[in-house]
Amino acid sequence: MPKATTGDVVSTEDQAVPTVGVTAALNEDGPAREQTVNTFELHKVNVHYGDMLAVKDVSLDIPHNQITAFIGPSGCGKSTLLRSLNRMNDLIPGARVSGDVLYHGVNMYGPKIDPVQVRTVIGMVFQKPNPFPKSIYDNVAFGPRILKMKGNLDDMVESSLRRAALWDEVKDRLKDNAFGMSGGQQQRLCIARAIAVQPDVILMDEPCSALDPVSTGKVEDLMLELKKEYTIVIVTHNMQQAARVSDLTAFFTVAAMDQTNSRTGVLVEMDETRNIFSNPKDERTANYVTGKFG
């Protein structure tokens, strides 16, 4: 259950969240796994940019406190879909989402939903580390400050940096500019910044694509640690990464639409990660994960 912060998004306390779709199917024949609750349920989601259909008819469930990976070739709409989960797409002129994006049963594109509130509950980490041009401390404190969160700011900064496994590296230079950190540290700072506002979900858009292998390893360890408290959705180009960290993997691909002659992303299949990589049901998935295509 999400922390009851503010807004309409989290009016789900008493809602019985049905366990359906992929997770239910997995639980029947998969290994013994505790009954999962779905954080997101997507039904026939389409995303348009202007007249262009970027993502078509995606239906999938994202379970609570698990890492779900979106993989697929460039242009398959995985980042677009990720950005529709916290309404970051609203910021792109002409972007339009149709279908149901249910967050704990609440339609995120309903008339009463305020996208600004959505983003306080569903945080995001971007492809390129994007610290603010301020001190390390101010970077982490920015979220709690603008949201006027109650509590000791120093404590919030420290606990966020600790949970992002960054505290020991930066505790003596909290006042230094964040631009002086290495790329990997900057990315973990961005994760600490996202944690500081106490979200329920963290979306990660290729968080390691700008990092070296050592930093990537640290971020991946961090993800595995964070999934105890947060639902994580990660977009990645790196299949080994998906295999290493994720519990579930959704494979997307690009389909040429006959009528419009444009390229549209579609979901091929979603399953437990080890099934996607060792025993995929769809031939396209098999070709992709074995490196024959993409």
Binding site: N86, L91, V116, R119, F126, F132, I146
Partner: peptide, 24 residues
Amino acid sequence: SIRDGSLALGATVWQAVSKQVLPA
């Protein structure tokens, strides 16, 4: 990315502009 970073933390457009973009 500075705007996106602010907005992804739940800042309003005005907060992102006045606290991050304009100072920068």
